[in-house]
């Protein structure tokens, strides 16, 4: 572990003023990422994972949003940073890939022009040179006939091609941190495999750190170094991929693993689904938000447990480590 983290988030809270009062979508999360690290951020819809990413990029523009806490990128505080200063960092040092490649590109400009625009926003470079760079990038993400594709409009490309174009754009200034919000969810598995391989290769070649938001634990197993599991706006478990996949500690993580039907071996007669539905953010239960769905909830869960644990593997659960180990051994999480 290098001493200096690339990105350090502490106590980040994102809330929205609504008719029901202040609704917290992200409730004080903290984490750090080292250069070159791929962090998987796992959670279901409404867990706050996408809002976390948008907050990191300064992309929460709603006038009703309230942001607090701190996001330090290479030591510089991003929360509350002015638009100009922010624009010097995002797109250049931090770049983002979005979930839906179908809507992520401006429909009336060519793919090449959109990449050129980003390059020229950050570097003094001639249009011709920027264009050449754009074509190179398009080729680097594995698109055949890159010069031709650069001159095409987004709607003329398939979903996989568009997502590659979005990735090429994100990479155009060699960002130190790549933030990817469900980059493969809208794509077919065979294309997903190509994109994941591409992201992995980029880390190896350029040393970019990656935050990868996904709901798919398979994707995490494939590519991540570290994992954070979010539930109702909080990180409930964090650790290395190995920690999390071999000995998950939080009952929600157990539930997630058990919910996934296996692709090989014996088929269970029933999946052990997590009962109930994720809580609405406007009506969160007091204490541990997972309590109403948790098979092991008891009185102590009325107070929100802190993240505790050893060696970087920490979970926010009141169950004692011994009890968790017992439950795990009893097959709570068939991972």
């Amino acid at each position: 572990m290098p001493a200096e983290p690339l990105l350090e988030v502490s106590g980040l809270t994102v809330s929205f003023r609504t008719e029901d009062g202040l609704v917290e979508a992200v409730r004080g999360i903290s984490f750090a990422i080292a250069p070159g690290e791929i962090m998987g951020l796992v959670g279901e819809s409404g867990s706050g994972k996408s809002q976390t990413l948008l907050a990191l990029m300064g992309l929460i523009t709603s006038p009703n949003a309230v942001l607090s806490g701190s996001v330090r990128f290479r030591g510089q505080e991003l929360v509350g940073l002015g638009r100009r200063a922010l624009d010097r960092i995002r797109g250049r040092d931090m770049a983002m890939i979005f979930q839906d490649p179908m809507t992520a590109l401006t429909p009336v400009h060519t793919v090449g022009a959109q990449i050129v625009e980003q390059i020229r926003a950050h570097e003094r470079i001639s249009p011709r040179a920027a264009r050449a760079r754009a074509v190179e990038l398009i080729s680097a993400v594995g698109i055949p006939a890159p010069a031709d594709v650069a001159g095409r409009y987004p709607h003329q490309l398939s979903g996989g091609m568009r997502q590659r174009a979005v990735i090429a754009m994100a990479l155009s200034c060699n960002p130190a941190l790549l933030i990817a919000d469900e980059p493969t969810t809208a794509l077919d598995v065979t294309v997903q495999a190509q994109i994941l391989e591409l992201i992995g290769r980029l880390r190896d070649e350029f040393g970019s750190a990656v935050i990868l938001v996904t709901h798919d634990l398979g994707v995490v197993a494939e590519i991540a170094d570290t994992v954070r599991v979010m539930y109702a706006g909080k990180v409930v478990e964090e650790g290395s991929k190995r920690d999390l996949f071999t000995a998950p500690q939080h009952p929600y993580a157990w539930g997630l693993f058990a919910s996934i039907p296996p692709l090989e071996g014996a088929r269970p007669a029933r999946l052990s689904a997590i009962p109930g539905t994720p809580p609405r953010l406007s009506a969160l239960p007091a204490g541990c938000a997972f309590r109403p769905r948790c098979a092991h909830a008891h009185a102590a869960c009325a107070a929100m447990p802190a993240l505790t644990g050893e060696g970087g593997h920490r979970a926010a659960c009141v169950l004692s480590p011994a009890r968790r180990a017992e439950l795990l051994a009893a097959g709570e999480a068939r991972s």
């Binding site: 990029m57 979005f98 401006t106 980003q118 754009m169």
Partner: peptide, 8 residues
């Protein structure tokens, strides 16, 4: 949002 993320 993509355009904003580009830092323009």
């Amino acid at each position: 949002r993509t355009a904003r993320a580009k830092g323009i």
